[in-house]
Nucleic acid binder design. Structure first.
Lengths: 200, 200
DNA sequence: GAGATATGTCAACAACACTGACATAAATCC
DNA sequence: GGATTTATGTCAGTGTTGTTGACATATCTC
C-alpha cells in the first residue's frame, strides 16, 4: 500500500483548518528561508518541527538502502554498522567499537561473532597490548562494506548535486553540531580516518 | 565505560599510518570546504564517508534525548514516533500513520493500543468515511508530545545557533534531498502541517 | 603478587519489527 | 442489492537487536 492509500482530498488529515495552509505540493514554505519563529518573552520559541521530521524521514530512507543487499547475506543493520566502522578503521578494538555503537558488549558480540565466523571480519591480537583484539575486514568483508557504502554514497551525492555541492560543508557542520558536544572530538577523529586501502 | 576506556595514544586505532593524518582534535579537515573528491574517469568517486557517519552519530544523539523521559512512562521510541505524528497531525488515520512510519499494522497496533489505553491518544470515527479512525492526542498526550519535542527542539536550536541560523534553510533542503524522490511531496505536505493548537 | 583492564560467554528478558491468517464494518461498483 | 474492495482489528508465531547480571580468562600495571 502506498500513495494510493491516501484519502481525504488534499492528502492531509481531515481536521477543519480553514485557510492558513498553503496548498503544499510544489511550494515548500517550511524550507524556504522563512524567518525562524521569533522567540519573544513568554513564548519559549516554537521547536523546529520541520527539521525533526526531515531528520526522521531522511534517516529512514538512508538506512533502508542497504537492507536489500544485507538480506541476501542474512545480515541486518547491526552487521552493517560493525562492518562499516571496521572497514573505515582497520585495527579498531572492541572497546572503541563499543564506544562508537553505544551498545553492550553482549549485543556486539553476537553480530561480530557471525561476521567473523562467516569470514567478513578478522581479528588479530594487539602487539603493544596483547589483550586487545584488533579488528579488520577480510577482502570479502571489505567488498561488502564498500558495496553498501557505495549505495549510501550515491544517495548522498545525488542529494548534494540537487542542493548544490557548496552545501556539503554546511551540511556536515550542521550534523556535527547536532552531536553531543562532549562527543564531537571523538567523532572528528574518526571522520579523519584514512581512506584505508584504495582497492575496491 | 566512556572516554577513559580509550587506549592507544591518539585515541585512534593502532594501524601504522605514517603521516597524512592531521592531529585531529580541534581542526576538522573533513568539514572544512575541502574540495569534494574529484570524480575522474575510471575511479567512480569516493563516497561521502564523513556525511554517512555524521548522519549516524547525529541521529544517534538526536533520538537518545527523549529516551529518559519515555522510560518514566514505560514507553519506547516507537511510542514517541506515534505520539509525535499524531500530535502534529490531529485527525491522522491509521493508514496515513502506517505510511509515515513504514511499519506493519500489527507493529503499530501494539504501541497504539497502549497509548490509547493509557489515555494519551484518542480515536474517533471518521464522518465522511466511517471506516476511518481519526487519531488525536488527549491533553496529556499533547503535553508529553510537546515535552519531547521541546527536548529535540533545544538540540536543533543549539546546533543552528552554532552553525549560524542562515543554515536552517540549507540544512532542511539537504535533508529533504536525501529522501526518496517519490516520497518528497508526501513529506512536504506533512511538514506544512499546521501548528495545531498553540496551547502547551 | 594484587588489582585493574579487555575481552568472551551463558542465560534470561524486552522492545520492536516481521509474516500469515482471519474477522468485521463500511464504502463502492455494477 | 449483492459482490468486491477498503480500512481496521486481532491472534499466533518468529527474528533481530537491544538489555541486565553473573562469571571466566588473559594480560597489563603497580
Amino acid at each position: 500500500m502506498n500513495e494510493a492509500a491516501r484519502n481525504s482530498a488534499t492528502g492531509k488529515p481531515s481536521t477543519e483548518k480553514p485557510s492558513t495552509m498553503p496548498s503544499a505540493t510544489g511550494t515548500r514554505p517550511a524550507l524556504a528561508d522563512a524567518a525562524p519563529p521569533a522567540a519573544n518573552e513568554d513564548r519559549p520559541e516554537v521547536p523546529a518541527y520541520d527539521l525533526m521530521e526531515l531528520l526522521f524521514f531522511a534517516y529512514r530512507d538512508f538506512v533502508a538502502d542497504p537492507d536489500r543487499i544485507l538480506a541476501e547475506y542474512g545480515f541486518g543493520r547491526a552487521h552493517h554498522r560493525v562492518l562499516h566502522f571496521v572497514d573505515r578503521n582497520p585495527g579498531l578494538t572492541i572497546a572503541e567499537l563499543l564506544d562508537i555503537l553505544r551498545i553492550t558488549k553482549q549485543s556486539l558480540n553476537r553480530v561480530l561473532k557471525e561476521l567473523i565466523e562467516q569470514g567478513y571480519i578478522a581479528q588479530r591480537t594487539g602487539t603493544s597490548d596483547r589483550r586487545h583484539r584488533l579488528l579488520s575486514c577480510t577482502p570479502s568483508g571489505r567488498r561488502l562494506a564498500r558495496r553498501l557504502a557505495a549505495l549510501q554514497g550515491r544517495r548522498l551525492r545525488r542529494a548534494l548535486d540537487e542542493v548544490g555541492p557548496e552545501l556539503r560543508g554546511p551540511a556536515g557542520r550542521f550534523l556535527l553540531a547536532l552531536i553531543e558536544p562532549g562527543e564531537r572530538d571523538a567523532v572528528s577523529r574518526l571522520l579523519a580516518a584514512p581512506a584505508a586501502t584504495d582497492e575496491p
